[in-house]
Simulated scan of single mutants.
Amino acid sequence: MTVLQQGLRTDVRTATLVALAAAAPFAVGRLAGGLLVGGGTALSEHVWCPFRAATGVPCPLCGATRSVVLASHGDMAFLSYNPVWVVVLIALAVLGALAALAGRSLPQPRPIVGRMLVGSVVAVAWTCALVHRQAITGI
C-alpha cells in the first residue's frame, strides 16, 4: 500500500467517524428518548447544568439534549429548545458521510476561520438558549 492510499484510507476513516459521532446523539435520543420523555414530560427535571445552577442563566448547550431527543422522534417541539445543535449535528453527519463516500478528507479551514466558525456557532447557540430560556429552564 502506498503512502497516498494509506492517507486516503485514514481520511475516509476520519470522515466516517465524524459522521457516526454526529449521528450517535440522534440514535441514543431515539433509543433512550422513551425513558427520558416518559409521559410527554419536557425533561426539565432530568437535566442539570452546572453553569445554569451557578448563574441562573442557560449556557450555550442548555436545551441541546431535549432538542436532539425531540428531533430524533420527529417532534417539531425541538425548535422550542436549542435547535442550533440539531442543525450542527446534522451538518457534521452529512459532511462526514459525503466526504467518506467521495473518498476525500474533511475540509480543513485555516485555524482563524475554524475559531471564528466555532465562536459564531457558540454565540448563536447561546443566543438561542437565552431566547428559549423559559422553555429550557421551565421558569
Rank of each mutant, 00 (worst) to 15 (best):
G7V: 02
V57N: 06
C62P: 11
V113Q: 13
G63N: 06
G56V: 00
V3H: 13
G74C: 11
N82H: 02
A97D: 05
P109W: 13
L92S: 01
C62V: 06
A54W: 14
L35W: 14
L4M: 09
Q134R: 09
A93C: 09
V69K: 03
H132R: 10
M116I: 15
P107H: 12
V124S: 11
V12H: 09
F26I: 00
S44V: 15
L20N: 03
A100M: 15
S80Y: 15
G96P: 01
R104H: 10
L130E: 08
Q108F: 10
A22H: 09
T16F: 14
L17W: 12
V69D: 01
L4Y: 04
G33C: 05
A99R: 03
C62D: 05
G74D: 04
L95W: 13
G40Q: 05
P109L: 03
A53M: 10
A100Y: 12
D75N: 05
A100D: 02
M76H: 07
H132N: 08
T2R: 12
T41A: 14
L95S: 04
S67L: 10
G119D: 14
V57G: 01
G63L: 04
V121C: 00
G103R: 07
G119N: 12
A64I: 06
T14S: 15
S120E: 09
V118F: 02
A27W: 08
L101V: 05
L89E: 09
C62I: 09
A71V: 15
T127C: 11
V86N: 04
R52I: 14
A54C: 13
